[in-house]
Design a protein around this nucleic acid. Structure first.
Lengths: 340, 340
DNA sequence: TTGTAGGCGTTATCAC
DNA sequence: GTGATAACGCCTACAA
């Protein structure tokens, strides 16, 4: 069983020392053009690929950023993944992704894998509350670690924070400004910080506006496929039917829109609707009846910041962890109407 | 600048040799319960994480499968990613993904990165024709490499092949069976094998059925967002208007459906429509007017096979490369009607 | 049951 | 401009 060619093989073939080969491979000065050519030639002939494990063992650097996802279930997530790659590349880093398929143990596994030398830093995307335990257990306080969506400022890690409650409040204020007073909220999975934040934003905005708070107007879901359709039924069954809905995310909102449509209920004529995430851009095949108004997250800036903070920590492991906050903003479609 | 704890640190703290520590870390026999506890304790206190680079340097094994994507632009792709993780995990492998964001050079970069010791094998997903050059250049004939969608049987790599032309033919036959004779095809990006295969399947089925081939009935697109809407316009502008359409993929088909809907043209009443990929399952928020009929790929089996073939090659680097073929199949929605 | 020694492929230091 | 040599952190005979 022959093995992969190493620097030594090249050195032999080119008739030089392995030091010289290494220098050529790393484009370093102090090698004559002649030997450089010889070495490159030998490498080509042997189909040489440098052994990254050996390299990173001695340099203790991989130039890789690892990203851990819960799943790829939303177009926003995958868009973010592409952006992360883009910004990582700009900084000279490879970006590799892993999905734990919503398994907590697997998630810890991947983080450990990256921390164990597969990556110089990790970006964890997701807002599951239980992630805290994992991080507490694994963090050693010096490994570059950045969290997007969640927020653990006490844990010596970087945080990319979206002011979700602010976005939710903006949605509610917009609807209230159009004259709506009975505004319902469809929640996400309450085990996730984003769902809590958006609900809290809804609640406090309702109270601040003096619209009161009808507990029946909060419909709880787990944000899984199909929950929007179910929520639509619940909405229609309400006695004092709301005139507007703020949904945890666009998928739920579109499901509701679709369910309403099938029952002959029109958006925005009968119901005003606002979602979250603004996935419209990726939904070229969205329902045609109405453009959804939605709260958009600044994905590009989030991705750029996540990479930047991670890289900064890689270069200065003893620097303080940072928290960067972004505000989402309302993007108007045509799914809301004034009832004044 | 202190460094990460190593086996040696643990050995010192626990008062044993590094061999013993290594044994404990790998759950090997031949260690007294007493020392094992001492070692585990020391590791815990030091927050020890094994250095994977060092380990893989000596074992020349990473237990990682690397996957390279062009992008995450379709729900089918991301679903496949989750499935790959699932099957890899079942075999004791980590699965890490990278997207080259449709950049050929970046793609080669990631493949090299994986081949350079970051992964025991690589799965390349995508059907860009130009991939061939990359593979030809990088392959050394022993590194486990599996391609999904593309097909390079001469290149000493594993191939997971979907019989795309067969699926296309099935779509055409179904439409013909409903009495359609003027059947149009909206192509994908002609630089991709899948687009070619589906078009060829369409062409040969049309000819086999004796329906002739009107070149104007083939509408070429690059499969990017928005191309379906444009294709819809072209369809409607045709003199001898087709009564049925087979689209390269579901996204295009849904875009067409949407564009038709806005113009008051109904599916399936005025147009019968078949897509490819059957993304319906992920489109809980799809347009409600009609369920799309579509050609579905057996994603689970594809993922399982890709992982299996890759792992097999990892364990037997000198075994022959394999090709596994799958047939897609028509899943009926309600987007086609008989005009007989 | 435990420890010693050698080496995996690379980079870095320091001679020549 | 070039080449020995010593790490990097780990595993694995082999010896004690």
């Amino acid at each position: 069983m022959n093995t992969l060619p190493s620097i030594i093989d090249i050195a032999k073939l080119a008739g030089v020392s392995k030091t010289t080969v290494s220098k050529v491979m790393n484009n370093q000065y102090g090698v004559s053009e002649d030997t450089r050519k010889k070495v490159l030639d030998a490498a080509e002939r042997l189909q040489y690929t440098p052994n990254l494990a050996a390299r990173s063992l001695v340099t203790s650097k991989t130039n890789v950023i690892g990203v851990v996802y819960d799943s790829f279930s939303s177009p926003v997530y995958t868009e973010l993944a592409g952006l992360l790659e883009h910004y990582a590349k700009a900084q000279g880093y490879h970006l590799v992704l892993s999905s734990c398929n919503n398994n907590l143990e697997t998630k810890a596994n991947y983080i450990q894998y990256f921390m164990g030398g597969a990556a110089d830093g990790v970006i964890l995307f997701g807002s599951a509350l239980e992630d805290r335990q994992i991080i507490e257990k694994l963090m050693n306080g010096r490994y570059p670690f950045t969290v997007i969506e969640n927020r653990f400022e006490q844990l010596d890690i970087n945080n990319i924070v979206i002011r979700n409650s602010e976005g939710a409040a903006e949605a509610v204020r917009h609807l209230a400004g159009l004259g709506h007073t009975r505004i319902a909220h469809i929640t996400g999975n309450m085990q996730h910080r984003v769902a809590l934040d958006r609900m809290n934003g809804y609640i406090s905005a309702m109270q601040d506006l003096g619209l009161g708070l009808d507990p029946r107007h909060i419909i709880y879901t787990d944000a899984k496929i199909g929950c929007g359709a179910a929520a639509a039924d619940q909405l229609l069954a309400l006695e004092d039917r709301p005139t507007a809905v703020f949904a945890f995310n666009d998928i739920i909102a579109y499901e509701i829109m679709d369910a309403f449509h099938l029952k002959g209920i029109r958006v925005p004529d009968d119901f005003s609707l606002i979602g979250f995430d603004n996935i419209r851009e990726w939904m070229s095949f969205k329902p045609g009846y109405s453009e959804l108004s939605s709260i958009a997250q600044p994905l590009k800036q989030m991705a750029a910041a996540a990479v930047e903070l991670t890289v900064k920590r890689v270069n200065h492991p003893d620097s303080m962890p940072e928290t960067v906050m972004f505000s989402p903003k309302l993007v108007l479609g045509g799914s809301c109407r004034s009832i004044i």
